[in-house]
Deep mutational scan, measured.
Amino acid sequence: LKLEELTVSELRQQLRLRGLPVSGTKSMLLERMRG
């Protein structure tokens, strides 16, 4: 599964599971997911 294919709400869910901030735009969330 490519990160880009996730919805913003799915990205936020994944970030929350990792204890990361869930604020910002989709591109910011993607950068955060990539670490």
Rank of each mutant, 00 (worst) to 15 (best):
L1F: 10
L20G: 02
R16M: 13
L11W: 00
S23P: 01
G19I: 05
R32N: 13
Q14Y: 07
R34V: 09
L15P: 02
S23Y: 12
V22T: 15
M28V: 14
R12C: 06
L17G: 09
E4A: 02
L29S: 03
R12K: 13
M28Q: 15
Q14G: 06
R18L: 15
E5V: 07
R12T: 10
E10C: 02
S9G: 12
M33S: 07
K2R: 13
L15Q: 07
K26S: 01
G19D: 05
S9D: 15
E5F: 05
L6Q: 09
E10A: 05
K2D: 04
L17Q: 13
S9P: 08
E31Y: 12
K2H: 14
S27Q: 15
L11A: 02
P21A: 11
G19L: 03
G19H: 10
E10H: 00
T25I: 00
L6D: 06
R34S: 13
E4Q: 07
L15C: 15
E5Q: 08
L29A: 05
E10T: 01
L3R: 05
R12D: 04
S23W: 00
L29T: 08
E10L: 00
L15Y: 02
R16S: 12
K26Q: 10
T25N: 13
L3T: 12
Q13C: 11
R16Y: 02
L20Q: 03
L30P: 04
P21E: 13
G35T: 01
L29V: 01
E10W: 01
R32G: 07
E5S: 10
R16A: 14
R18I: 05
L29M: 07
S9M: 15
G24M: 01
Q14E: 13
S9W: 11
E4H: 13
R32C: 02
P21C: 07
T7N: 09
R18E: 11
L3M: 12
L3G: 08
P21Y: 00
T25Q: 05
E4D: 13
T25S: 14
Q13H: 14
S27T: 12
V8P: 06
L29F: 03
E31K: 12
E5H: 09
L30W: 04
L15T: 05
M28D: 11
S23Q: 11
E31T: 07
R18C: 10
L20Y: 08
V8W: 13
R34E: 12
G24F: 01
M33V: 09
S9E: 15
K2W: 11
G24S: 01
E4V: 00
L20F: 07
R12N: 00
V8M: 10
L15M: 10
L1E: 15
G35F: 08
E4P: 06
L11Q: 03
R12S: 08
L20I: 02
L3V: 08
E10G: 04
V8C: 04
S23K: 10
L17R: 11
R34Q: 15
L15V: 06
M28G: 04
V22Y: 15
V22G: 10
E4W: 00
L6C: 08
R18W: 11
E31Q: 10
R34T: 13
L20K: 03
E4T: 11
L17C: 12
L1W: 13
E31N: 09
V22R: 06
M28P: 00
K26E: 06
L6T: 02
L17A: 14
P21T: 09
V8Q: 02
V8D: 06
R32P: 05
L1Y: 14
K26L: 11
S9Y: 07
K26G: 01
L29I: 01
T7V: 00
E5M: 04
G24W: 05
Q14H: 10
P21L: 02
M33F: 04
T7G: 10
G19S: 07
T25G: 09
E31R: 05
L29C: 05
S27E: 15
L3A: 08
R16F: 12
Q13I: 13
R18P: 07
R18N: 08
S23N: 13
L3W: 05
R16V: 10
L6M: 15
L11R: 03
S27N: 14
R32T: 14
L6I: 09
R16L: 13
S27D: 15
L11I: 10
L15E: 06
S23V: 11
V8A: 15
L6H: 05
L30T: 09
